[in-house]
Design a protein around this nucleic acid. Structure first.
Lengths: 355, 355
DNA sequence: TTGAAAGCGTTACCAA
DNA sequence: TTGGTAACGCTTTCAA
């Protein structure tokens, strides 16, 4: 049973511990941070004193002195997007597991990324993870000059200073293309929204390549662009696609739809259903992200799964690496994705996809 | 066009600005923090110098000196829950709008709440918002002693030190009960999960009271308890309810189901549909939270809306109030909720509910 | 191994 | 109004 004598003095400092333990501040610091040599008995006395007084390091002072806080900055936009919150959740876990604390900034506009980074440097963070927005290269360089590593997740590499960890969009698009092909789709739709993120565009291009590589004629791939992101965007796209007509053709050539993200896919599916068209009977549908909702009974979306915890872990690895070696050339680290077979494009029985 | 001379010296301090402006550090500090008197010309020179050098305050040093950082701690669990992420999103916006930065901790276990608070104090945060978990009163008191106000959102008031901002669960339950009654429901089910949060239990009790106050016999209200939270819990509950039988009775007494949260409601609806039972034809369903998904076409859940931005704003107001006056008695601040009419229990045409 | 002392970068008080 | 100075609380040389 630890007994705190009395919280008379509002805040207990290393000095107080030193006094009680009968040593100097320096010894206290060394003992508590396992840094420098301390005799076993001193250490014991310090630890006892610290416990007794309920001493806790002042991270502000510690950071000021070390020129580095145990903070890691995280930039995110629209946390209400299920994929984003899943990713941030993974990041928080990873950050805390490594003994850091997360300083989170929400941006509503890509432009704000830079400002966030600046504020992070003012806290002397140990690193920054950008999950949304594209920071201006100049500001990233500022960070690097302050020895603050910056890593992006699922975004374009902007300049030579920022590492990037990125789900393998190309592989994802290939998996989607292969699945749709194997399922017998003859025509294809790529669904994205206007002003899509870099990741979305990358997926679209990869899908295009994957299809043409499979010998699909260009006119068989249409692109649908919703005026806005999210569920509503997908819903809108469904109402403005002409899939309902082609699906009703006598010799219906099954259409395969690939979406830039999970929300678009959910919205699209609902929008089509509202018109009496459903997957996989009338068309096939594959989304990206594998958010929890895509697994819900009403959707059961076939989707490309992103390993968020791997993304998070590798991002932190990156920060760590680069902190040790700032001169390192910027890397792009791919993270594998997986195709999750669900109802909107069910698994096809073994079939060599060599067409 | 601002020109940064050269980032030769890694980090520029107030001293540097002072030197360039030809004044002392003190003047720089006063000029830049609008605190204390500075002559117009000094101020101008300082500002120019600061801009020229790209000076940015070191928040660590500032906080150390002021004994308070411009950080606000946020405790959250399971950020993947859409309601949580919506709430945290609102909190982040509010925190930043007021010039603070959010220090976010994810807890996986209620027990960790205390540890989070401790770490927050080590950063000398200006306040703490607890959105998950119940902090031990002793630790909350520690915070208060360090002049760090703590506010909870949607949780029980634990002890006399923590303010609480809380959606009006009672009103929500009343609205739900009234709606179901008006829709003609004769029997009722309250759906919650084992080990529910305090808010969930409070909603259940309020629902119970509301019904009995309306003269509903106790045997008309059953309670369903899922073994786990979330969508899966709701889905499970649907499979283990006997609603499918009662719904098929010849003289079917329409059943009204009220759920502790949105995920349960979505899961329950899907689970029932899988058995061929649907709302509102076979039963009525009302959820809580009004998360984005409940508005999706596949669900269109009638639900109790929580005003997350009001919750966030009032929570920060609380912190502010209490920072000014730490001796204040702990408050419980209710936030109004609204009934959102959607398909699972559609709006009934004007009807005085005086039964 | 230990303690004294010099910072880390700001802010606030106080005398000028 | 201004500048010197003393904190703020910690870490890290550097001698002893």
């Amino acid at each position: 049973m630890v007994k705190v004598p009395s919280p008379n003095k509002s805040t207990v400092t290393a000095q107080d511990v030193a006094r009680l333990a009968g040593v100097s501040r320096a010894v206290v610091s060394r003992a508590l941070s396992n840094n420098g040599s301390v005799s076993p008995q001193s250490r014991a006395r310090v630890e006892a004193a610290a416990r007794q007084l309920g001493y806790q390091v002042n991270f502000l002072a510690q950071g000021l002195n070390r020129q580095r806080s145990q903070l890691i900055g995280v930039v995110v936009a629209r946390l209400t997007d299920p994929f984003r919150s899943t990713l941030v959740n993974a990041l928080l876990s990873a950050i805390q597991a490594r003994g850091y604390q997360a300083l989170v900034t929400e941006i509503t506009d890509e432009q704000e990324t830079g400002l966030s980074l600046r504020r992070f440097t003012q806290f002397r963070v140990s690193g920054v993870v950008v999950t949304s927005g594209q920071p201006p290269e100049s500001i990233v360089r500022e960070c690097i000059e302050h020895h603050i590593p910056v890593v992006g997740i699922n975004r374009a590499q902007s300049g030579p200073s920022m590492d990037v960890v990125c789900s393998d969009n190309h592989a994802g698009a290939m998996l989607a293309a292969a699945q749709l092909r194997a399922a017998g789709c003859q025509s294809f739709i790529w669904l994205n929204y206007q002003g899509s993120t870099w990741a979305g565009r990358a997926r679209g291009e990869a899908f295009h390549h994957a299809l043409t590589a499979k010998g699909i004629a260009p006119e068989c791939l249409r692109e649908l662009q919703a005026p806005k992101d999210g569920y509503e965007g997908g819903f809108w796209a469904a109402q403005h696609s002409d899939l309902q007509h082609s699906a009703l053709l006598p010799q219906r050539a099954t259409t395969g739809v690939f979406c830039a993200n999970a929300l678009l896919a959910c919205g699209f599916l609902d929008g089509m259903r509202q018109q009496g068209i459903n997957a996989p009977t009338d068309f096939h549908l594959i989304g990206f992200d594998n958010t929890p909702q895509t697994a819900w009974e009403s959707y059961q979306l076939t989707t490309i799964h992103q390993q968020v915890d791997v993304l998070a872990a590798k991002a932190l690895d990156c920060l760590h690496e680069r902190a040790k070696n700032p001169e390192l050339a910027a890397q792009v680290i791919p993270v594998a994705v997986e195709l999750v077979h669900r109802r909107t494009s069910p698994c096809v029985t073994e079939q060599t996809d060599t067409l």
